[in-house]
Lab assay of single mutants.
Amino acid sequence: MTEYKLVVVGAGGVGKSALTIQLIQNHFVDEYDPTIEDSYRKQVVIDGETCLLDILDTAGQEEYSAMRDQYMRTGEGFLCVFAINNTKSFEDIHHYREQIKRVKDSEDVPMVLVGNKCDLPSRTVDTKQAQDLARSYGIPFIETSAKTRQGVDDAFYTLVREIRKHKEKMSKDGKKKKKKSKTKCVIM
């Protein structure tokens, strides 16, 4: 069974824990209790493949930012979460993405942009803004509501699919490099 290491990042209060708990335990946590770091595991079937999701729910508070490099190193894919009623959390996505790329030393890291709290009427981040940002990053965008469960499975499952595509691409690139290195030079 394939294991996928997913990391949920975003500013404090955007609903990272609520999304994760909704996926794992099928219930909505409405009281806000700032996370330092929590880890969850769940076995699911995605596109006919049974897999184990190892999900790291991270601290959004700035005082825990020193811990970010460590979990970013171990993560295979990242859910970059903002709240649709919090423009600052949307603007912060850029910083999370840049930090992930720096730590992973790669421009090509599996990510999904997630606009959470889409059940709320007080939207300050337009869907088109988020779609445009995701398009500019070359990553999928999904709106979710941890409260109603809308888009929750889709967000995590899409990230797994992005990781699969990335692994497939990397193995193809690896095979191309191996083929090239088999060419021999004969000096007579």
Rank of each mutant, 00 (worst) to 15 (best):
T127A: 11
T158Y: 08
S136D: 11
F156K: 00
F156W: 10
H166W: 04
D132S: 06
L159Y: 00
I187Y: 13
D173S: 02
H166A: 05
S136V: 07
R135V: 10
D132R: 04
A155K: 00
Y157A: 13
H166E: 04
V160K: 06
L159S: 00
R135M: 08
Y137M: 12
K178C: 05
F141H: 02
T127I: 10
L133C: 08
L133N: 05
Y157Q: 14
C185L: 02
K167L: 01
I139L: 11
K177V: 12
V125S: 10
R135S: 11
V152N: 13
E168V: 03
K128F: 08
K178F: 09
Y157F: 14
K172S: 11
R149M: 14
D154L: 10
K128A: 12
S136G: 06
K184L: 00
K167H: 07
K175L: 15
K169L: 07
M188S: 15
L133D: 04
G174A: 07
F141W: 06
G151F: 02
Q129M: 14
I139S: 03
K165V: 08
K169W: 07
A155N: 00
A130N: 04
K165R: 09
I139T: 03
I139Y: 04
Y157C: 14
K128N: 12
A155L: 06
V186P: 15
M188V: 04
S136M: 10
H166S: 04
M170A: 08
D153N: 12
Q129W: 14
D132A: 07
V160R: 02
H166D: 06
D126L: 05
Q131R: 13
L133R: 06
L133S: 05
V152H: 06
V186N: 15
F156Y: 07
Y137T: 13
T127W: 08
Y157E: 14
D153K: 12
D126G: 08
K182G: 10
T127N: 11
R161G: 08
A155S: 03
K165M: 06
K169I: 09
M170G: 05
Q131S: 10
E143A: 02
E162L: 06
S181R: 03
T127G: 12
M188F: 03
K172I: 11
V125W: 10
A155E: 00
D173T: 06
R135K: 15
K178Q: 13
S145L: 01
K178V: 08
K172R: 05
D153T: 13
D132H: 04
V186F: 07
H166I: 06
I187E: 15
V186S: 15
Y137K: 06
I142K: 08
K167Q: 07
D173F: 05
D153P: 08
A146G: 09
E162R: 02
A146S: 01
Q150A: 04
I187D: 15
Q150V: 02
D126W: 05
K175E: 15
S181F: 01
D126Q: 06
T144Y: 00
S136P: 04
L159P: 00
K184H: 06
L159K: 00
E162Q: 10
K180A: 12
V152E: 06
K175R: 08
K175W: 04
K178S: 14
V125D: 14
D132N: 04
Q131G: 12
Q129Y: 13
I142F: 10
T158L: 04
V152A: 11
Y157D: 10
D126H: 08
R149A: 11
L133V: 12
D154Q: 11
K175G: 12
K177A: 09
L133Y: 14
T127M: 11
V152D: 05
I139W: 01
D126K: 04
V152C: 09
M170V: 07
K128S: 13
A130W: 15
K176Y: 09
E162Y: 01
K177G: 13
D153F: 09
I142R: 02
R149Y: 09
K128Q: 12
